[in-house]
Design a protein around this nucleic acid. Sequence first.
DNA 1: GTCTATATTTGGATAGAC
DNA 2: GTCTATCCAAATATAGAC
Lengths: 204, 204
Amino acid sequence: MLDIPNRDRRTERRKATREEILDAAWELVRSNGLAALSLRDLAHVVGLKAPSLYSYFDSKNAIFDAMFAQGGRAYLEQEALVESTGDPLTDLKAGMRFFIEFCTSDPARYQLMFQRTIPGFEPSPATFAIAIEGLDRLRARLARIGLTDQRSLDLLTAIGTGITDQQISNDPGSDRWTRLVDEAMEMYFAHASETTIRTNRGTT
Amino acid sequence: MLDIPNRDRRTERRKATREEILDAAWELVRSNGLAALSLRDLAHVVGLKAPSLYSYFDSKNAIFDAMFAQGGRAYLEQEALVESTGDPLTDLKAGMRFFIEFCTSDPARYQLMFQRTIPGFEPSPATFAIAIEGLDRLRARLARIGLTDQRSLDLLTAIGTGITDQQISNDPGSDRWTRLVDEAMEMYFAHASETTIRTNRGTT
DNA sequence: GTCTATATTTGGATAGAC
DNA sequence: GTCTATCCAAATATAGAC
């Protein structure tokens, strides 16, 4: 018998280092902000010199792209765990609680994925597809609840991002706005129900 | 008769140039974004070289500070023009329409004043005082409508900033979210009224 | 007050030795 | 794959002549 036929240790090591780099990048952007990420700092954290990073990523934006993709996959994974009860209001609350928790728990990630504040960065098509998949899941979830018209969905996303932004901007690390989620969803649900009924009456 | 006794032409000219510079700065940040403002570009627009700006402002942040103050004064002026009818819902709608219009009509100004995205910039105490005055006016307006508890105010600001952010981020220059203001305020008002009544019943 | 020239810093990115 | 050395670009800010 000869040696084990090329169980690519090299590729595995390479992948592991890539993940080390991305982990360090998250650490840095969480403490210094997204805009402050520099390749020198990043390399230093993982014990390399800046040019060595180019063996793993083509550019700084390629690193942002990989981070965006990680964020998208995390969203899909966690979103799948949100359980449906069949009761519209309960499910609406749970869905919104999840979204806001996902966003506020990592402001740097939120900034990267949902606000577009890095000059010159756009996710690659492959990465963007992950984000689109996330939006589709959200739309499907709301459709199951009975919400399909654009106007209602827009109002809902405004409430969700409003709570998220206020929480991140004005009370980071606490819950002054996030604790309003359930109340906000009750308010919204009452309104949406009434509007739908009224519309149906008008149409029939 | 001698010459007119020192009607400080020098000081007036200086002030005029300062305003020219600030006008040019607004122009640049509106078209290129707040973060992209450079002193070279700015100087070029007003027909100067970069170092000459230091005759008018101590630093780049001093320019941002002056812009912030201008924004604050504009807010106070325009806010004073919003008329009160005495009808709570009508006034609530008008107040929120004003706020959202003020913010969305100039995203760069909104970014400067309400989001804190410029690394290293904080408004000076004098400038910040203008912003505080604006917040006080807002609080007074809502108190006249009958809204005083923090929770209700927080929910309201979340809705306002949510509509603003979504409009700016996802449909700039149009009205996909801003047109929802009246509906959102009806929803909110119905909820706030109900909550208050319920609370009063519980208390009495 | 405005200019030229320059200091200083800080990035991203590349070349080529090892 | 990693390094040293370097390039290149952009930006704020200062010094000193005029």
